[in-house]
Every structure is written in C-alpha cells, then in structure tokens.
Design a protein around this nucleic acid. Structure first.
Lengths: 210, 210
DNA sequence: ACAATATGTGTACGACTGTACACAAGGTAT
DNA sequence: ATACCTTGTGTACAGTCGTACACATATTGT
C-alpha cells in the first residue's frame, strides 16, 4: 500500500472541509459538489470520506459551525475596535469587508447556503444571522445609542442591518478581490444603507406608534 | 420509432424550462441539475435538449428572461392597485407575496441565482433588480412622495428597498406555502422594514449632508 | 410536389458517480 | 506483547452523466 501517514486527529477531516471550501471559492456551487470531487481536491481516496462525514450535507453542516466561529471572531474584533459612536458604521463595515476578503470562500459558502439545497444548512446559516443580530442589539443597548427604541423595534432594526450587510456580501463576492475601487464602492454604499436605517430608527417612534 | 408528435414551435423548449423550474421548486438547486435529469422530468429524450439549449447555463439565462416578465407583470399590478400613498407599502408587499406564492418556483430560482454558479445568471438577476429599483424610483418621483431627496439618495433608498424585499424572499420560500400565519409574519415584518427605511429617507437630508 | 430545414428519437460510449467490501497500518488500552 | 479500534487504501460494480451520431418525421419554402 502507498505510504499511509496518519497525522493528528481530525486532520483529514479538516482537509476535506478545506477542499470543499476551496472548490466553492473557485466558483463552484456547493450543491453541485460530489464526494469524489472533494476527496480528489483533498488528495484523499474517495472511500475515506465516510470516515468523517455521512454525506455532503453533513459536511455542509459542519462548515456552518466553522462559519459561526469566523463570524464570532469578526464580532469580537468589531467590539474591540469600534469605540467612538460616530464612526461606528463605517468602521464596522470596514471590519466586515476585511473579514470577507480574508475568508472569501467561507462567505461564498454562506451566500450560497442561504438559498441552498440543504434545509439544514439553510437553517443553520439563518440561525447564525439571528444570533448576530441579537448580539448587535445587545451592543447597541449597552452603548445606550438606542434608548428611545423598545426591544421589538430594536430587534427589527438590527435584523434589517444584518440583512443589508449580508446582501452586500453578494456584491462584494461579485467583484474581484483586488479591485480596490469596486470594494470601496461596496463599502460606502453599505455604510450609507446602515446610516439610512439608523436615521430611520432614530425617528421611528414618531411613526412606529401608528 | 415511437410516435413523435411535433406541436407548436417552442413547446418542447417551454417544457424543458418548466421541468427545470419544477425541479427547483421541489427543493433541488439549479446548479446541481443535469441535462438528463431535466429532460427526464420533461418527458423528452436527452439528446433533444441540444435542439434548444447549448447547456444548462444557457437554459438558466433564458429562465432569467422569463423571470423578468414575471417581475414586470408584478410591477404593473402594483402600479394599478396602489393608489393611495398611505397603504403603499403594505399593499406592495402583499402583491409581492401573492406573486411569489403564484410563481414559487420562479422565485426559488431567483433566490438561488443570486449566489449561483453561473456568473451570467447572477448578473442577469442583479440587473433585473437594478431595473426594478430604478422603476420604483421613477414611480416615487411621479407620486411626489420624495421631493426632498436628490436622485442619488433616492436611488440608494430604492436599492435598499429592493434588497430588503429580495431578502424577505428567502424567508418566504422557507415557509410552507399554506402556512398562513408564517406568511403573515413575513408580510408584516417586511412591511415594517420598508416603513423603517422610508422614515429614514424622510429624515435623511438632515444627516445625509455631512 | 419536392427539397430543405427544424425538431424529436434511439443507440452508443467513455467518463464519472456513490458506495460496499476487504485489507493494512498506526494508536491505545490492557 | 497482545488485542482492539480508528483511519486511510485499493478494488469493484452498477448506475448516471454529457454528448456524438445516424435516423425519422413534421413543417416550411419553392
């Protein structure tokens, strides 16, 4: 038998996930990936796939979990760097964009998964977004920037914010990662979206009561 | 040879597109569909596919064109039914939802295509959305509801509106089509999103100038 | 009426697919 | 040291895939 080097536990598993992600990053859609294709990309024999995943959907679910880690890291960084309220949105969007650039394939996967084939993956990603929105709401409460909003309206606002940013993902992934100009465009546009939303939130009570 | 009935021109072509759409409506992802699968669903021999499309991407592009027709029909209906400004948003959202329910598969295809495998399909759908946003801007101008906004800000607002509604599509397609309660939830939430955005737009100048 | 064209059918083939199975080799526990 | 368990490999097979080709029929143009 060809040399079989067993390394750290989980290494092959990681290679498989990385391989799937890499194919997605190259423009393939996750739903169209096959087991053989992924194992080939990972440099592993096809049957070995089953040692780690039951099928491609299973692999997708585990990717969602890892995506969650990426998002949490992003959130932590945003919390650490966004101190003054006046630059809150521009800074946050910048951090978001830098994370997308640093983990392009992951966010490709996320964008695809939102309307993907697997119900479970879809729900997983949506759940990550809900979590993100609720954390955002907590932060805003803590910073006392939205005292005039009740919880329900704040949740709605944060939901809309997260959705808008998520949609910008589609724009961002559509432009080449070294097209600085286009990226800047996406950034300013997204920032303006958020500003518009928060202007709305600031004046919401007056109309929201009806 | 088995009976070959040639009917109206374009009939088989339509059957193929309908078959692909039907598979998508059943939960499959367009990117994972194969030629054989689609022809099988259409009740047609595989090789006949090539009489009408060069490949699956080609079929996808033609579906985008048809999707454009659906959207235009929706726009026309909205223009005809939304007369008083105070119910503008709730009415529009209701019309949107009813069209989604009536053309579920089409909108599945649209949601998938936004992060799909084919660059061309992706661009096509995005282009439809841009068109929709610009038509919306025209209508709002004509109704003189946004006189305080300059063109650029109006475009941005409409862009955000269209994106928010498009994202709600994901919610809507995620719930069963006969779950009236959930659909109502999506409807009210989407409407509130739009209201929030327009409240923001109404007060935009004060902050947008900086 | 006849030729040309467009469209659907049947057959064929090599490539690729998912997955079952037996086996080998490294890690771990006794 | 021995037995086990986990993980990677190799082989195998039946099913599916895209697509090339020759052929049949219906429609269209003359």
């Amino acid at each position: 038998m060809a040399d079989k080097q067993r390394r750290k536990p989980g290494e092959t598993r990681d290679k498989l996930m990385a391989a799937a992600l890499s194919l997605v990053g190259k423009g393939r859609h996750f739903a169209s990936l096959g087991i053989r294709e992924v194992t080939r990309e990972a440099g592993i024999v096809p049957t070995s796939f089953y040692r780690h995943f039951r099928n491609m959907d299973d692999l997708g679910l585990q990717l969602v979990d890892e995506l969650g880690l990426v998002l949490r890291k992003m959130m932590r960084e945003a919390r650490a760097n966004v101190l003054q309220a006046d630059k809150l949105m521009a800074e946050s969007v910048a951090i978001f964009i830098s994370h997308v650039e640093a983990n392009r394939s992951f966010f490709f996967f996320m964008a695809q998964g939102l309307a993907g084939e697997s119900q479970a993956v879809q729900e997983g990603i949506r759940s990550e977004m809900r979590f993100f929105a609720s954390e955002l709401a907590n932060d805003l409460r803590r910073m006392r920037l939205v005292d005039h909003l009740n919880d329900r309206d704040l949740d709605m606002t944060c939901d809309l914010v997260v959705r808008s940013v998520a949609f910008s993902l589609t724009d961002l992934l559509g432009v080449s990662s070294d097209d600085e100009y286009q990226i800047e465009q996406v950034k300013t546009r997204t920032t303006r979206f958020l500003q518009l939303i928060f202007v709305g939130a600031a004046h919401w009570k007056s109309v929201g009561a009806l």
